[in-house]
Design a protein around this nucleic acid. Sequence first.
DNA 1: CTATGCTGTGCAACCGGTTGCATGTCAACC
DNA 2: GGTTGACATGCAACCGGTTGCACAGCATAG
Lengths: 338, 338
Amino acid sequence: MAAERKGGVTISQVAKEAGVARSSVSRAYTRPDMLSPETVERIKAAAGKLGYVPNHTARALSTGRYGNVALIVPDVANPFFPPMIRAAQVEADRSDFCVFLGNSDEDPEKEDQLLGRFAGQVEGIILASPRLSDERIAAHALLRPLVLINRDVKGIPKVLIDSGTGIAEATQHLADFGHRNIVYVSGPSTSWSNKQRRAAVRHASKKLGLELSFVSASVPSFEAGLQAVDAILAKGATAAIAFDDVTAQGILAGLGERGVSVPGEFSVVGCDDALGPLTVPSLTTVSSRSIEAGKLAVSLLMEVLGSQAVRDASYVLETHLIVRSTTGHAPRRGRARG
Amino acid sequence: MAAERKGGVTISQVAKEAGVARSSVSRAYTRPDMLSPETVERIKAAAGKLGYVPNHTARALSTGRYGNVALIVPDVANPFFPPMIRAAQVEADRSDFCVFLGNSDEDPEKEDQLLGRFAGQVEGIILASPRLSDERIAAHALLRPLVLINRDVKGIPKVLIDSGTGIAEATQHLADFGHRNIVYVSGPSTSWSNKQRRAAVRHASKKLGLELSFVSASVPSFEAGLQAVDAILAKGATAAIAFDDVTAQGILAGLGERGVSVPGEFSVVGCDDALGPLTVPSLTTVSSRSIEAGKLAVSLLMEVLGSQAVRDASYVLETHLIVRSTTGHAPRRGRARG
DNA sequence: CTATGCTGTGCAACCGGTTGCATGTCAACC
DNA sequence: GGTTGACATGCAACCGGTTGCACAGCATAG
């Protein structure tokens, strides 16, 4: 309870107060079993009296264990990431780790820089949906423990969200509703997730005998979705599966503008469940499991830090379709194009 | 380009390589003007050859300048915060600072803990919309530089988003459309922003001669908005201003369920512009300026770090109404209740 | 030609912890 | 009863930088 001055109480002050050596104070915290119970007691009492708090930084310097991890994402403001960040944060907390957050702005260069800046003060790094090349990722992984989310690089531990399963369900769902001609509105070509989703919808359509076309919304945004609508309608489809929810919302807005009712005349499926049931009408989508991914990535990293051995573990999270209000029966006859 | 081993190159190795003392290597980076240009040159060359990178942690230990700041928010996943976090991140980056992110889960206790955990390794902390008591905040501020966002504690530098101006515009906007009876759907009672918004709508209504009632959605969530709808309609109002966009979305959904058309029969205004134009119909709302707030808070913190003197600066950000599609003319006659 | 001052560099202490090793104590064992 | 060993604690070096001070070299002033 003593009034602490700026900078705080040090181990030496506690040692003096308790009448022991500095090393004993240190051990009272790190290996109390090495000391007699009474000594520990006495030291803790002195520490409490002085308001001592171990200095994270000093400890890190001598042990090399920083007690920090970094999480780097392409865009904090993309609704896909915040839940993941939050989960990672909570999980790290359970191990008494602090989380550095980095925002790469979708820029590989920036990502590289951040990796460097954090390097000196974290024990491990989690890279979510990295835009960096496989080579650079591998190079960084050589220097310090790295865990990837939604990226598959040989030899590096990773957590993958398999949106393929959910997309397959979505395709089946549309087929069940009688849709015979659908469109996949694809996202960034460099995205691992986009590749996976595209492949899944193709595979499922083939199996179900649906006619499938592709429309590209190079960046996943509301505007891109909006602009894709004409191309989508031109394909003569009655339903669309979008790369993500934000794109899907754009598509919905575009359909609205053109007087196409959803789900009466056209069905739309999103991906990532980034918006929840918040929208009107609420979007049928594929669960993202980003929360579990964040949590898992941290615990995987902790595992790697514990034993050097774990290298190259992979977790794959399956996803599922969440049916809400933007999908319904295919219109009786292929609808007249507006 | 030399192959670095885990742990990295140290100042001593560079010193040996360059044939100088360790202190000179240090000075080559921190105060090159103290050294002859050739010496600096030689040291940098040696450093480059060895792949030396100054160790952030060691430097922090001896200087007390950590080069890190912490940002603590109540809920990363609340769409209000990610843009702010992102902006803070970017701004910190410009000063070569790294950002720790803390998530308090809306829990004062947790917030206190985080503050403690970060204490040892950051130079300053930004507390966004804290749930902590004024006393605890003041206590922490005594120990280290603190900047607040959306909280007004005497003597502590802060950035306030004045949603009052935007709310006043919203009220005027509704009055212009002929609404005479409106409802404010309030948020958490402990929230500084909620108090402010409530006061603003009251003040504006009085000035404009509008009839105003209150409905409480204790937590700001989609469900809370949904559940508030009956109470709102019971007031006989033709328009509602909600504490935030998420609540507003809930209200829209509830109105939809009851067959009340928006904006034909009822107008809704949100606050924070957290969802952008993504929704259908797009929400009329009050800009949040959370991006500027994040940026400003960091630069204010940097200022405080630079000179001990700045204490107790305040920035106030005015907000404005963003008109989209959920507001319109009041129905001719007070609508028949559903 | 000696006193004075400036410049560039090195020495060594320090930041606040951790940890290998040495020392001292005491009980158990042969 | 002296040896052995377990246990508790202290000493001092170390982590990788920073920085006050001392000192050497040289130029300028008196």
